[in-house]
């Protein structure tokens, strides 16, 4: 797997001349594979015991960030949407409050990732790799993942506040949940970074 370098830039995943017939099919396969992985992680996490309902490590976040870095925002959005939809259908939570929260979180994360990629740019492997290229510009998976995790939790809390419990005591819950999101977001970022590194060292 070594895509053309332009595919990593958001909004520039347009086909190069001559490959127009093949591209859609390959992109579909990529989306499907990543979405399947994300759904698997999503469902797996639901089975994990959690001290607080709604608090999960968010490992599917890794897949979203990988999709963004390797294939662009459109692919990441497809993967995120499919994960929420298929995950909820598998778990039987489609259109339930859980689904609404899940969708809100994924939307929040994708919006922030889109803004970050467009405004700041992406440095696929941070500063550690590519010593010859000098310090990476833009956000590495570490920063992307943290931003996505906080946006995910923030959007969920916002929607929960608006729709379910507009109670002032909510702040008690927001602080620890956002802290947990930051911790897990950083962890996801490290995982995404390692995977991208393995991918890069793999012989082409």
């Amino acid at each position: 797997m070594s895509p053309p370098s332009d595919a990593t830039l958001p909004g520039m995943s347009g086909a190069t001349p001559g490959t127009t017939l093949l591209r859609p099919e390959r992109e579909d396969l990529q989306v499907a594979a990543l979405a399947a992985l994300a759904v698997a992680l999503h469902v797996l996490e639901t089975a994990l015991p959690s001290p607080v309902p709604g608090m999960k490590p968010g490992l599917a976040n890794v897949v979203t960030v990988l999709a963004l870095v390797r294939f662009g925002w459109r692919t990441a959005a497809w993967v995120g949407a499919l994960r929420v939809l298929v995950g909820s259908l598998l778990l039987g939570t489609f259109l339930s409050p859980t689904f609404i929260l899940s969708a809100a979180g994924a939307t929040g994360a994708l919006v922030v990732l889109g803004l970050a990629a467009r405004l700041v740019g992406i440095a696929p492997r941070g500063r550690g790799a590519g010593q010859h290229d000098g310090p990476g510009r833009g956000l590495s998976p570490l920063g992307l993942s943290l931003a996505a995790a906080l946006a995910h939790m923030g959007a969920q809390l916002g929607v929960a506040w608006l729709l379910f419990v507009p109670h002032p005591a909510f702040l008690y819950l927001a602080a620890p949940l956002m802290t947990a999101a930051a911790a897990f977001g950083t962890l996801s970022g490290i995982i995404a970074w390692r995977i991208l590194e393995l991918d890069a060292t793999e012989p082409a």
């Binding site: 700041v120 941070g126 500063r127 550690g128 590495s140 920063g143 943290l146």
Partner: peptide
């Protein structure tokens, strides 16, 4: 290599 944050990452942190 160890994961090293970029300057932009540090701003996010």
């Amino acid at each position: 290599s160890r994961p090293l944050p970029t300057p932009a990452d540090l701003v996010v942190f």
